[in-house]
Design a protein around this nucleic acid. Structure first.
Lengths: 192, 192
DNA sequence: AGAAATTTGGCACTGAGTGACTTTTGTGAA
DNA sequence: TTCACAAAAGTCACTCAGTGCCAAATTTCT
């Protein structure tokens, strides 16, 4: 990894750290992009090149979790029922969260604390659900899942994920994410 | 109803109409608050007194639907299982949508067309889910529902609602919302 | 008609975000 | 090492959303 890339990674991480600290101390709306940038000795313009919006300084980090979901999903056999693949990939993603529990706990706390950031995350999550719907549709040539499954099941699984993560955060990460997820998913049955 | 109130209602409605038209023609991001206000012969300052943000010019109108959900929910017996109440109130809300199909179709189309508006709506929907969770918790003294039901079921039902409305919009309102909802809900079973 | 209350407009301001241009800094070859 | 090139960072000027404040207009009530 080149010096350039290492510096970029460091700046990204520093910006996140500074943002989290300021958001916690003063709140999201009360913190300016300029303050965050100053704390890292970088211009506001540069911050906005790293992150397209103020929300993204925090929320972009959940994309990693989402890519874990997607790559797990890609590995599932196309012959598998939709809901089985989805639940398996959800568990894979949560395992990733659990493996960096402190990190994601901090981020999710910041997300939960501000309506604006939360809105952005919900939008990302909705977009991901649509992407997964599309992937399921492409399966349909081979193994199906009706029109509804393909649309509904991703939406429901992501709603479950949000609920589970929400509770995890509310309980300060005391319990295991996968255990929480299994408790939740035992209450819902998907038609095959 | 006084002249003042009638005028206010008219201005609200005019602003919505102007916004929808401009958003459709040029897109949400490309339309300024000023353009919307001009189209209604009102100052931008006034627009922002009617609607706190540009997104709200469109999205605030779904609050009516939400209040239908809530008032239906309040009428359900507290002894009823959580998911029964939730599904019943969801149907009540969709019946309201269906009764003003053209109106909601137009609005939901605009919402779907812009990530920013969609994010706002998702946030509102998440907030409503939390409110309903709170109401369910208050039931628990009398008739229960475990900790998980109370958190998870509202989240899932609202996810179902979004999926159903999404499909309804995608199909141009051709099919009946309640029929769509029943199709969707037949694929999911909630543990009692 | 006229005083009181409410609504609207105008203005100045902050902060997010963008585009264009210049300066700095890392990279790769001679 | 040094020098040319590319990538990144900074600067500046700008647009637009949103807010607070005060003055002008409009509605309401007497």
């Amino acid at each position: 990894m080149s010096l350039r890339e290492r510096k970029k990674d460091k700046t990204r991480a520093d910006l996140l750290a500074a943002a989290l600290e300021l958001f916690e101390k003063q709140g999201f709306a009360e913190t300016t992009i300029h303050q965050i940038a100053d704390a890292v000795d970088v211009s506001a313009r540069t911050l906005l090149r790293y992150f397209p919006t103020k929300e993204d300084v925090v929320v972009s980090w959940v994309e990693e979790g989402m890519s874990v979901f997607l790559s797990s999903f890609a590995d599932r056999p196309a012959s598998e029922p939709a809901h089985v693949s989805l639940l398996a990939s959800a568990r894979a993603m949560l395992a990733h969260y659990q493996s960096q529990a402190e990190f994601y706990l901090t981020i999710e706390r910041a997300i939960a604390s501000s309506p604006a950031i939360r809105a952005r995350k919900l939008e990302m999550s909705a977009r991901l659900a649509e992407e997964v719907t599309e992937l399921l549709r492409q399966r349909r040539g081979t193994a199906g899942g009706g029109d509804w499954q393909v649309l509904l099941y991703p939406a429901l699984v992501f709603a479950m994920l949000r609920a589970v993560i929400g509770r995890w955060v509310a309980e300060n990460g005391d319990r295991d994410l996968l255990a929480l997820f299994d408790e939740a998913s035992s209450l819902v049955t998907f038609a095959a």
